[in-house]
């Protein structure tokens, strides 16, 4: 294990319920530089439980940066100051002895705070349900190379599919726009042959639900791309815009 422990001041958002008024609770903590931010919260919770107090509610699952459950805002940045890093992979060695951290939930009208650091991200699920899939029966596994896809297209589609749906784009955006998320979900299908039959219905359906769920409009600040733990490119937003115009020009059926 590396250097000696560091002392941090942690201001952590506490909120009893969606309706309750939230506040920052201050914790002074000596911590190993090898601990991740979630392990710091675990340690604080152990102490709180030992003292018979209510532990801090926060979400986490895989703790290896692939599930997207652990969204926290650390010092004003979703997933903290390191680029392309999820909260769970942010270790305390990135902070100095004596640093003060503000740990908050994602803030957006579309993401209601449920308790402490947990927000309701079901808006994303609703967008996905509206069109983030291909609706064929898969049947048995097809032979390889039956459908040819160029390397470049496959790469771009996989880059878009890297989105873990954590919501950092919405949290980073000054307008709480979900366009990076929706752009990625639209693109991963729009780039592949399997996505073509439903391409234009998909983009219209997903954008419609996005707008209905109180996400803001994109003003191209690109804060989403800068904060995305998977480095999803705003190219995907441009592709979604393009597909949306084309959809409105081409299709006549969808309202």
């Amino acid at each position: 294990m590396s250097e000696k422990n560091i002392n941090l001041t942690l201001n952590i958002w506490r909120q009893e319920s969606p309706e309750a008024k939230g506040y920052f609770e201050k914790f002074e903590k000596e911590i190993s530089p090898d601990a991740s931010i979630l392990e710091v919260l675990d340690e604080i919770n152990n102490r709180l439980e030992f003292e018979g107090k209510e532990p801090i509610a926060f979400e986490s699952d895989c703790r290896e940066g692939i599930c997207g459950a652990c969204g926290l805002v650390i010092n004003g940045q979703p997933h903290g100051p390191l680029p392309k890093t999820a909260t769970c992979q942010l270790h305390m060695r990135n902070f100095k002895d004596g640093d003060t951290l503000y740990i908050e939930p994602f803030r957006a009208t579309a993401f209601k705070i449920l308790k402490d650091l947990i927000v309701d991200r079901s808006g994303f699920d609703k967008i996905q349900v509206a069109g983030g899939f291909v609706s064929f029966n898969t049947g048995s596994a097809p032979d390889g190379n039956v459908i040819l896809i160029s390397k470049e297209m496959a790469d771009q589609a996989l880059d878009a599919a890297e989105c873990i749906g954590c919501g950092a784009c919405v949290a980073a955006c000054k307008n709480s726009s979900a366009m990076l998320f929706v752009g990625a979900k639209v693109s991963q299908f729009a780039l592949l042959p399997q996505g073509q039959p439903e391409r234009y219905e998909r983009v219209q359906a997903m954008v419609k639900v996005m707008d209905e769920n109180l996400f803001g409009s994109c003003t191209n600040t690109y804060a989403c791309e800068a904060e995305c733990p998977k480095g999803i490119s705003v190219l995907n937003i441009a592709r979604m815009n393009r597909d949306y115009f084309m959809a409105k020009l081409k299709t006549g059926t969808n309202e």
């Binding site: 004003g76 100051p81 000054k174 409009s217 600040t221 804060a223 800068a226 904060e227």
Partner: peptide, 21 residues
């Protein structure tokens, strides 16, 4: 106006300059 309604609460630390112009 709509975007203000979509994002009414600001963070304790303003880190905007880290991610946008």
């Amino acid at each position: 106006w709509e975007n203000k309604k979509a994002n009414p609460e600001k963070y304790a630390v303003n880190a905007n300059k880290e991610n946008s112009t």
